[in-house]
Amino acid sequence: MFEKYRHIIPDFESFLKAVETPQPYWFRVNTIKIGEKELVSRLSDKGFVLERFRDLNAYKIVSMPVKHPGATLEHSFGYYYVQDISSMVPALVLDPKPGELVLDMAAAPGSKTTLMAALMKNEGSIVANDTRASRLRALGSNVERLGVTNVMITKGDARTMDFKHLYDKILLDAPCSGEGVIRKNPKHGIPGDKEHRYFSQLQKSLIKNAWKHLDTGSKLVYSTCTFNPIENEDVVQYAVSKLGMEILQVEFPVPHVRGVSFWEGRDYSDISDYVMRIYPHLLNTGGMFIAVLEKR
């Protein structure tokens, strides 16, 4: 499945080995409801062995006395959210502040929305949008469980929807072919070129509508959980060359590599040094692509 990426993924054999092994669980403490120290102490008392990543609110579950990390009262009370550290990075890079107006264009099931709300201390506003009713139910249920009160949830096609404001920050964690979540979902089908092209078109429509809703000088984080450059660098290059956005350097202390410069005859060297690719073998996580853009 991944052979076509041999020349763009560094240490490819380690990558292959990583994607064939189950992915460890990570979580973050929901600081809206409880302090990190208290939750860690409660879970440790119950027999969880946890490993914190540097100074981030991100904990790897080394071992646990339950089958699933969500099978605790603390989870039901909304004290933590099971989320891979790679999936936390887009929201942490966007770095929303209390008081800002933020749009999360493809928000369900709400892992990044609820993280942003915690960073904003439930102040300011987040418009969290998604398309399908079933996905919105999951989003609503997570917002409620985590006690997030600064979010409004909308249902609409984010390619064309009028979100009624110019936003301080936008997160576009775009629908994608999902190659980076294969460890969590080994039954995930193998995406073909047709699928990558379909998602790429969709992602370009989404980023165009995101651009329309940004204030001048405002920031957009574009992310996917897939590896194919057509869904990543190609979309970012479109935003730079066709929409006139400025690409900013992403810096974040989670192991990563820079973007792909050349792919199937396309040259992305103008933007590849700015973006960030997280591969499963770098920190034993899922995969993620992250770019930061600013509206001129």
Binding site: V143, E144, G147, V148, T149, M152, I153, T154, K155, G156
Partner: peptide, 8 residues
Amino acid sequence: EAEVVGVR
């Protein structure tokens, strides 16, 4: 258009 606003 909001279907949910904060917490019920």
